[in-house]
Structures are given as C-alpha cells and as structure tokens.
Design a binder for these strands. Sequence first.
DNA 1: TATTGTTATACTCTATAACTATA
DNA 2: TATAGTTATAGAGTATAACAATA
Lengths: 139, 139
Amino acid sequence: MATERSDLAAMLGPIVRDLMAIELPILAAHEVSMWGYVVLNALDDTPVRTQSALAEAIGADKSRIIGTLDELQQAGLIERTPDPDDRRVRLLSITPQGRAMRRAVRKDIQAAELQVLDGLPAADRKTFLRLLQQLHASR
Amino acid sequence: MATERSDLAAMLGPIVRDLMAIELPILAAHEVSMWGYVVLNALDDTPVRTQSALAEAIGADKSRIIGTLDELQQAGLIERTPDPDDRRVRLLSITPQGRAMRRAVRKDIQAAELQVLDGLPAADRKTFLRLLQQLHASR
DNA sequence: TATTGTTATACTCTATAACTATA
DNA sequence: TATAGTTATAGAGTATAACAATA
C-alpha cells in the first residue's frame, strides 16, 4: 500500500510547535507579543482601514485583538486615528518605529527558524521553502 | 533583495488552521476528540509502556492526557492494565476497536485534507508531500 | 528519595454577548 | 436598524504543584 502516510496535521503540528519554541524567546527579547508581531506584519504588508478588517485578515475576532492594539499603540508601534468620514472607525497604521520593530524581529526569527528544516538536505530545503511560499501566495 | 519572504510560522499557521477546520467535523462525526485521535495514532504506531512515556511522545504533560485516556478507555478504544512488575505503572495498549477507529478516522481525514494543497500544481503537491514526510521521518 | 498516576488550583485564551457611539 | 469599537462574562485549555501509592 503506497499511500501509507501520516496526516498532514500530524506532520505539520510538531514543526509549528518547534517554531513557537524558537520564536517566543525572540519575541520576548523584543518585548512584542506573538499577536503583536502578527498585527505588525499584517499592517505592514497589506494595510487595512478598520480594526474589524484587520481582525478578519489575521483570523481573529474583533474583540480579541483590542488588548494587542492597545499595547502596540502605547509602545508607539501603531497609530489609531479617528476617521473623519465615519467617526465610528479608528484608522489603523503602522508607525516608522513599528516598521523598524517588525524588520528587527523578522531578521532574528528568520535567522533562527530554518533549523526546523535541518532534517532535509540543503537542496530539498530550498525546494520545500519555494513550494511553501508558492502555497502561501496562492491563498 | 532575494531573501524577502514570510516567516515559516506565518506560512504554516494558516495551513494548520485550515486543517483543523477540516478535521474537527470528521473527528466529531466519529465521536473522538483531537487529542484522543493523537493518542490512538501514537499507540498504534509506536507502542509505549507508561502514560508518562505517551505524554512525552505527543508533547503533552502527563497530567493533561488523563481525561483523554479515561474517555478512550471508556469507549473501549484503549486498555490500561496494571503492570505486575511495577504496580505504579498502568500499561497502555490500543484495542482492535481502537485500531479500527484510527483507520476509519484516518481514511476520512486523508481523503479531505489534501485540499489545503490545492494552490499547488499536482506535481508540486507530490513533491511537497514527499519532502514533508521526509522531514517528519527525520525527527 | 524518586517515580507513576492522579487531583486540585490558578492562570491564560478565547468565544459570546452585551453596551456606546455613531451611521 | 445596522455597524465599529469596547467591555464583561463565562468557558475551555493548560501549566503547576501537591498528593497517594509504589519503587
């Protein structure tokens, strides 16, 4: 039976768990939470107008990200400015410091995270990365 | 700059989230919890003696899996028999019903889960799967 | 004294539903 | 009446430490 294999989640789960273990100390060193980093990435890559839109973009409930936004704003990494055209809305934007923080954290994370692919030969690591990027881009 | 890419976790996270959404209804239909299914897989693939060893194998604390083991045992999917050589230990084993359940759930999951790779051409899907299996086997 | 399995406690996350202010 | 943001509440999940039985 050639199709005997583990479930995708059973194979991907442990990798993601290892990635968390690698990233959490890095995030802590930069004094940013995991969700804070997710928000900075989202705002930097594809700016959104409202908090609802941001929540939807990162797969969270609008009520769940408020504490994260409070922290990021207090740290000067994002701004929430009232929308003059619709005073219910608070327009979101990443600040220059937020962008710098995002870049700094990402540099550290990307320098450390590839160790989870150590089980593959170098050529296969490149292929895996390429396919994963392709898959991610297609969403 | 050719190295511009998303973090591994940022690319893998959404895939794992999609997999969860696909698998949870299937598990519910079979009346098995996610951790219950993880335990059945672990016991079927690489039998372990003690509950501690099982917990370690699936990356959980020994206290965290007790409720899961209770449910599985009550459903007749696993057995916990006292070890005569060390009466602190309860020897774990999967039952024939447990094995059948595992196979049935796995069949359904594997029939549904590959849709998360739909963003890749068929040939690349095969390559990705092969590399992922290789990576998983190297752990 | 250390270990296995268990239970109890507290803590973190999250989902849900209210609430306000606007539209 | 509906929507954006916020707050409050309750529930699930988890980590940690304590415990009884055995080694």
